[in-house]
Write a protein that binds this DNA or RNA. Structure first.
Lengths: 166, 166
DNA sequence: TTCTTATTGAGAAATTTTCTCAATTGAGGG
DNA sequence: CCCTCAATTGAGAAAATTTCTCAATAAGAA
């Protein structure tokens, strides 16, 4: 989000600040949600239509390596990225329909400290996902159905913008 | 793992117990690790070479919907599944090289209860991932490098079988 | 056994990600 | 300001993963 900070980080690591990278940083700076690659690409192209998809992949990888964004696991079909600073919404995902509810409470600090000590990793972030059944799907399964997933509604449900906030 | 239980679950839901499904249940029953689709397919074919990849996808989807198996998010490139009962290895992933260390301690019970109450979800499982830098990557970055990920070692690191257990 | 329909396997198609390579461009030095 | 050179790019090909289609098969009920 501090865009200048990101740009500086690039330079500090001897990386060039190119048109594409600047555009992508802008996109990420403006976004308030998690974005998947295709969406970053789409938005970046409104700033500069020349930007290629491969560059988006490359830049997002770099940003992740610089800890400016974090990969979040929202579904299996797409990569999603969140800015480092917003990386604190965790997810409750419905196994039935894919609906996602965000929540923020978590207490992994103790766990993180203990793992850091044992593994000598330097812990930088975390993500928690819980899986279950939303009320609608519970009702459906009480009625004996095995709901075949509906592609469209499932895609909607698993989209980047979680439907509710707990 | 209780194979008969799984087979029964199929019948209970009016689903047929076919050769392929039986083979896949066997594979899952024998496996002690998370498996990705391609691996399930490979193993199932040693039991019955006729099984097609599409059937593996279809069966794994069904199993997930029957709660006999859970999707776990180990990397972005593949789906991974774990048997419901073994869904309790969590991961510490190195942001630098992708190395994965498994750990088992976690205290999400309270969190789960509180979310269940607030959202009316029925919680069925969870996954925790922490991200950081492994000792090797910390050393490298102290030397100013931005390690470009090495495809091969990264693939090894992110594979289904974590390298170490904490 | 026969019937009915869910399920299958194979391959095509779609989707996402990675790779390759010639052309461009950023940043530093002169 | 211009040069130089390596980093970076865009485009498209290629790879990898997932989904779809459809005729053929086989599981389970009668």
């Amino acid at each position: 989000m501090p865009n200048d900070h990101s740009e500086q980080a690039f330079l500090d690591h001897g990386l060039k600040l190119t048109r594409s990278r600047r555009a992508i940083l802008h996109v990420l700076g403006d976004a308030s949600e998690h974005l998947k690659i295709a969406e970053v690409h789409r938005r970046a192209r409104t700033l500069d239509p020349r930007i290629g998809l491969a560059s988006v992949y490359r830049t997002m990888d770099l940003l992740a390596r610089l800890h400016l964004v974090t990969r979040v696991h929202m579904d299996h079909r797409h990569r999603h990225y969140a800015r480092q600073s917003q990386d604190h919404g965790h997810h409750l995902v419905c196994n039935g329909c894919g609906r996602v509810v965000e929540f923020s409470e978590c207490h992994v600090d103790r766990l993180a400290r203990s793992l850091a000590r044992r593994t000598k990793f330097q812990i930088e972030g975390h993500s928690i996902e819980l899986f279950g059944r939303c009320p609608d799907c519970r009702r459906a399964s009480r009625m004996g159905e095995v709901r075949k997933p509906d592609r469209r509604s499932s895609d909607r449900g698993r989209s980047a913008r979680p439907s509710k906030h707990a």
